[in-house]
Design a protein around this nucleic acid. Sequence first.
DNA 1: GTCTATAATGAGATAGAC
DNA 2: GTCTATCTCATTATAGAC
Lengths: 226, 226
Amino acid sequence: MLKDIPQEKQRQRAPSKRALETRARIMDAAERVFARSGFDAASIRDIAAEAEVQGALVNHHGGSKEELFWRVVARRADVLGDARVAALETRKAHGPLTVPAILECFFGPFFEHVDVGGPQWVAYARIVAFVSADDRWKDLAAICFDPTANRFVEELAALYAPQARSSVASGFVYAVASMLALITSQWRMEALGDAPINAADHLDKLVAFCAAGIDAAAQREGSQTT
Amino acid sequence: MLKDIPQEKQRQRAPSKRALETRARIMDAAERVFARSGFDAASIRDIAAEAEVQGALVNHHGGSKEELFWRVVARRADVLGDARVAALETRKAHGPLTVPAILECFFGPFFEHVDVGGPQWVAYARIVAFVSADDRWKDLAAICFDPTANRFVEELAALYAPQARSSVASGFVYAVASMLALITSQWRMEALGDAPINAADHLDKLVAFCAAGIDAAAQREGSQTT
DNA sequence: GTCTATAATGAGATAGAC
DNA sequence: GTCTATCTCATTATAGAC
């Protein structure tokens, strides 16, 4: 995926071990700072301070601020996209797919990474929410997210008549928006619901919400075939 | 609503007509610039240029950059919140409410304003998407959006058993996220769906998606009572 | 690969004339 | 209310020593 970053310079030699550690520390720091401040409010200085390195090193390892942002997003999008497609393949090998099953393959790897990877993956999720809400990152989203998204829309669309395809695509975008809302707006759900939230229930409820929604939207245009 | 803005200064005299026009022009310009750049990337200078006034006038009429942002959001949130609640009251007077009916009262006034008000309301919608995705505007969201949101969650929750309330609240947050996605990510739906989108169908599909989703999520916790 | 020092730019805000 | 001019500050990025 990194090869898709415009003007990505090809490195001539393998970086040293120390350089790799420094680089990883800078990427992680950038991820956290971008997550809490957004792209514009984040400064290279903040990132350098968070990584406990000098400012010039951030430019050295990450390139310009914008290149750094692309790298931060692409790094995890790669891993996550592969995990999602793998989950889909595995599920498919065990029997016919359903809408909830497909959504579980999309949401599941994400929440598993959040569970085991902790704050870094939550930070990534917040960044994805920023990227999705802002036209300015259209190209980034297209390169990093579209291949996986297209695959999932195709699997979903296969469950309905051809004329329902655009409804299914809309439903999938709503589902992604809902998933991101669960990450960024959990406090809001708790405030409106007058109760703290059981984390374990959340994924199930999200799947139930989106599966029913996609089915209802698709049924308006064509009948389910499986 | 403006009274809720911290440190809002009470004016001593009614502003002149010219001042009102200038002020409105500045607010509209700020709305457009904030919508396309977000808060941090927008500059007072950009806003002044967009409004065709001098930079100092923006500070004079809008206060600090952050105060200006609050004002821009609060101005429309007020109008929209009232329209939504009014739609709900009217509907309620004509018979028992349903989930789709409640959602239509929430979504409808918004899309009507977008239709008649055009670009300024679309700009507002994009700003709301930014506000919703960013923790930093929690207080702004709580003051401007929560009263209306609470009212709608209550009406929805009244259709289900008490223990379903937190599921209904989650579903409502998902619904709002989906509504914003329709504004900010329509291009994405069209790209994934391989077809341009019929604008008139969109509201219906959004309602169908969210109503089915809320019902499914709520049914996991309690049975519908009406 | 890492660091110090600094160049070059653009930001928000205000003082004070009209 | 409006405008000009400017203050003060923080930013990104790089040059060059080690």
